[in-house]
Design a protein around this nucleic acid. Structure first.
Lengths: 206, 206
DNA sequence: ACTAACTTGGTACAGCTGTATCATTAAAGA
DNA sequence: TCTTTAATGATACAGCTGTACCAAGTTAGT
């Protein structure tokens, strides 16, 4: 048997090129030829690994979601040393804010896909329900742990709080993306809300 | 002088057609010919009132923002009879959720424009900073009034709270839009957070 | 009636799009 | 060496896009 190439790897390389060029010029402006050029590869090869553009876009979305998931959980894990579970909660929420190029690109493209998903059922099928739900589960679990440690205000509903915080983080993210507010401002808003959920350390008493 | 037509009105009619067809098929899929057909008008006339597509899109965005602003303030005004300022706050926040066709279309298209604005400075120029800021001002003012009436928890910062609530509403909105959560669920999350801001009526004492 | 504004129709253009087909070359395991 | 897979190249296609130009018609104030 002749020349073997890891198809999954090649597909990933090409999809990464898609993400790069789309992050620069916008997803709507990306053509197959652009992807091929960005990947340093012939147009023919892009067709060879992805038969159609739709399949390429779908794979690009999956890659984007996966990469971002890894990024978030890496940050949360890195915050594991810090005292108290609030650090993890903050890491989870702040990782979603577009503060650097990587998260900016993610936010930009993920929103682009979300818009397309409204009119294209093939895109809407999986990632836009599964991924947010997973994030919500993870955050709710963190909050529940904090609640058991009696670090939260008593009247918080972990699940509802998780949903609200993630939505707030996403909304702030788009605000940053379109230049309405600065990343610092978004962080401040998020911090303020966490202060209202978590019991402040400097309360008197026990 | 011959046949006079209100140019502003005609432009509005055409832009409304743009919004309608874009709401159906997605903003990315809309061409000048589609807009002309939807408006029941010749392609030539669309070019006559808007010389270029970019100008048409820009005008469409302005129309969208204006119409939505009117809708929100109408709802807030309608909630003016209800007892307490919380009704107005709820009206403001819930009006932004995609619960009916009109608000769904708005959310869908406004997000589409936001995505385009990331790579197109001409679109980013005005509405994506001005409009959210105006909403934030209005909400912050409502919260400040509630605070003076001692209806809020003491440690809330009206401005930060307003920013956070609007971001949350926007984030929940996209969640509803992509089918991740139901409108009812979004309403519940929002209500829960308002409960943590507003002092519950059934506290003991005065 | 005349004139200027409105509106339509057709028709064209160059440029891009995704997709397809052709032959050819390069590489590497059997 | 041979055979399968990978990769390139050129080239084509039909279909759409926004924009443009021209001529002809309709409409309503003066």
């Amino acid at each position: 048997m002749p020349k073997r190439v890891d198809h999954a790897e090649r597909r990933t390389e090409i999809a990464e090129a898609l993400v790069r060029v789309a992050g620069r010029r916008g997803l709507h402006a990306v053509g197959m030829r652009d992807v091929a050029a960005e990947a340093g590869v012939s147009l023919r090869l892009v067709q060879y690994y992805f038969q159609t553009k739709e399949k390429l876009l779908l794979f690009g979305l999956e890659l984007l979601a996966q990469r971002f998931g890894e990024r978030v959980s890496a940050r949360v894990r890195a915050a594991g040393d810090a005292p108290g579970p609030r650090a993890k909660v903050e890491a989870l929420l702040l990782a979603a804010l577009p503060t650097d190029d990587e998260s900016r690109t993610f936010h930009h493209l993920y929103t682009s896909y979300a818009v397309l998903a409204v009119t294209d059922p093939a895109l809407a099928a999986q990632p836009f329900i599964k991924n947010p739900d997973a994030a919500e589960d993870a955050l709710a679990e963190l909050l529940r742990q904090a609640q058991e440690a009696e670090l939260l205000e008593p009247d918080v509903d972990a699940r509802l709080e998780a949903a609200g915080l993630l939505a707030m983080s996403a909304g702030l993210g788009t605000g940053v993306l379109v230049g309405q507010r600065s990343p610092e401002s978004a962080t401040t808003v998020l911090g303020h809300h966490l202060n209202r959920i978590f019991r402040t350390g400097d309360v008197v008493g026990t």
